[in-house]
């Protein structure tokens, strides 16, 4: 393993801003894995740290194929993590809305550009991503439909679901989108949480990457084959929205199988604790997303359900 600073700049009152990369093996730029880009993505960085540990062990045992290089970047934005701020410290911009970056541009454009210059030529790109809305996910691979997406390859991670979605305007400035445009096979892995660490789903995500690398002949690793992934369109996920604002009391957990007509949650009046509304599952299926705030706003999608096939 070789640890390198892949991008840095100085500041007057803080330590130098550094993005650190961990290299395993040498040769063809085969896979790059990126962890937290936002200051609250603790789970994403944690998963990367587990991956660094596992790859180091595999490398020491000589199990990384000759001529293959893997790069892991646990954290692109240590400045924000260290002050517990989600976006960039000074101007609140989002590094994951700055790709492919610009070396002569503003600070976050420069960070995105400096990092992208290092990672754009890898054959496979994986980002541990987070959702803008607070909640828990069933671990899955998410891919944008850019015309370059390789769904069959995504199935080789062996996670239960591959979710496809059409890019929205802001997606065109994300890492995943730009990786695809630069002909990297790019995948976003969503694990259960963002701020809080969920060890089990982090381990599952790391196992998925090792499973994928093993199937591509990049590492020699005895992994189980994982799941036969089911491919779904994000538009086919069934949203259940809060019919009122108030305390959110869920009756189910993420990953749980639910049946049509089942009580999913109650929204309670924050003054009187009377039920303002009950949320009933419109379909039978698996809970893919669960809102995890104590309160909800009206009309917020608090559940997303993968409908079971007839």
């Amino acid at each position: 393993m070789e640890q390198k600073t892949i991008y840095e700049f100085g500041a007057v009152y803080r330590d130098t801003f550094r993005v650190t990369g961990f290299y395993f093996g040498t040769g063809e730029k085969t896979m790059c894995v990126v962890g937290s880009m936002r200051g609250n993505e603790n789970q994403q960085m944690y998963a990367c740290s587990l991956l660094v540990k596992r790859l180091r062990e595999l490398e020491e045992k000589g199990r990384i194929a000759e001529g293959k290089e893997i790069l892991v970047i646990p954290c692109v934005n240590p400045y924000s993590v260290n002050v517990k701020k989600r976006f960039w410290t000074i101007d609140n911009t989002d590094i994951n809305r700055m790709f492919p970056g610009f070396s002569e541009g503003e600070t976050t454009q420069r960070i995105a550009g400096g990092v992208f210059d290092v990672i754009k030529e890898y054959k496979y790109g994986v980002q541990f991503a987070s959702f803008y809305r607070a909640g828990s996910f069933l671990p899955h691979i998410r891919m944008m439909k850019t015309g370059y997406e390789n769904v069959e390859l995504a199935k080789q991670f062996g996670l239960p679901y591959v979710v496809l979605h059409n890019p929205r305007p802001f997606d065109t400035a994300t890492l995943n989108y730009n990786w695809q445009i630069w002909e990297t096979d790019a995948f976003s892995i969503y694990t259960t949480n963002t701020e809080r660490i969920d060890q089990a789903s982090a381990r599952q995500a790391v196992e998925a990457i090792l499973c994928f690398l093993s199937k591509q002949g990049v590492i020699r690793y005895r992994s189980h084959d994982g799941y036969i992934s089911k491919v779904i369109e994000s538009g086919d996920l069934i949203s259940v929205r809060a019919g009122a604002a108030g305390f959110f009391e869920s009756r189910v957990t993420v990953g749980e199988e639910v049946v049509r007509g089942q009580l999913l949650a109650r929204i309670m009046d924050p003054y009187t604790n009377e039920a303002k509304c009950e949320l009933i599952s419109p379909v039978s299926g698996v809970v893919n997303f669960l809102h995890d705030g104590a309160m909800t706003y009206e009309n917020t999608a608090v559940f997303k359900i993968i409908e079971e096939e007839e």
Binding site: A244, A245, G246, F247, P270, Y271, M295, T296, Y297, E298, N299
Partner: peptide, 8 residues
């Protein structure tokens, strides 16, 4: 308009 959780 939209209702907020607590009295607003």
């Amino acid at each position: 308009k939209a209702a907020l959780p607590v009295g607003e």
